[in-house]
């Protein structure tokens, strides 16, 4: 069995989704931790120092390339799998299956993922792109990202879109976290139960932490 055969089989495609998913979850932990520095409420001093470390250091910048590769792989593979899976039924049922045994968000990973993708385009054009353009896409000087957050999140519609984006991410994670581990072969009951609980906890923390960031600026909780 060649590598191509392995990773293009239905199980192999799931493995790609699982591995890239876990990689993106690790990124989320770094992202939320760094962004949480805004709550130091020191006018963005700590946050901008963290952003400078990530943006002007060669190691995170090389990892950033890996992050994009993982992200693109997850998006392209996910969309292709969704389209392929949707085509397998042939003639649709006249009656609905309902929700026996499955949660709505586990059946809606493609839709939730697409919403996250749309949100990501907005999010990156708000922050990542202007910042990297200012750096000429090398290790130059960044813009004041804290000030940029403050102006971006002064508009209500932006805050609403960001909060909705965070909730899409949260539900995507609620299924994706535990599903990724099952895909990688974790079948022991005690580990599965533990990972499912951790997954739910992680999803809630990530959703609330990220959603609170635009709200904190909009509601003027921060200097």
């Amino acid at each position: 069995m060649t590598w191509k055969q392995v990773f293009t089989s239905s199980v192999g495609k799931k493995l790609v989704m699982g591995f890239t998913g876990i990689f993106l979850i690790l990124f989320l932990i770094i992202h939320v931790s760094l962004n949480a520095c805004i709550w130091a409420n020191d006018g963005g001093k700590m946050f901008n120092a963290g952003a400078h470390f990530m943006g002007a250091n060669v190691v995170p910048r090389i990892l950033e390339i890996g992050l994009f590769a993982g992200l693109i792989l997850h998006i392209v593979q996910g969309l292709m799998l969704e389209l392929s899976n949707r085509s397998k039924r042939g003639i649709a049922y006249a009656s609905d299956y309902g929700n026996r045994g499955s949660k709505w968000y586990s059946r809606s990973m493609g839709i939730l993922g697409t919403l996250i993708l749309l949100f990501l385009i907005l999010h990156m054009s708000d922050f990542w792109f202007p910042n990297r353009a200012h750096q000429n896409f090398v290790l130059g000087e960044e813009i004041d990202l804290y000030a940029k957050m403050k102006t971006t999140f002064s508009e209500l519609w932006v805050v609403i879109v960001y909060v909705l984006g965070c909730f899409s991410l949260g539900y995507h994670l609620a299924h994706g976290f535990q599903s990724a581990f099952k895909t990688m072969g974790v079948h022991n009951k005690k580990y599965n139960q533990m990972l499912t609980s951790i997954g739910y906890g992680f999803s809630v923390i990530i959703t609330l932490a990220f959603a609170m960031m635009p709200l904190s600026f909009y509601l003027s909780w921060l200097n």
Binding site: S10, R100, G101, K103
Partner: peptide, 24 residues
């Protein structure tokens, strides 16, 4: 056949209650 997305609908429907842990 399509690929599995671990939704759990199969396990809930199986007349012989085959566990989804078999998929993992």
């Amino acid at each position: 056949f399509g690929a599995c997305t671990n939704t759990g609908a199969c396990e809930a429907t199986c007349p012989k209650e085959i566990s989804i842990s078999n998929i993992a």
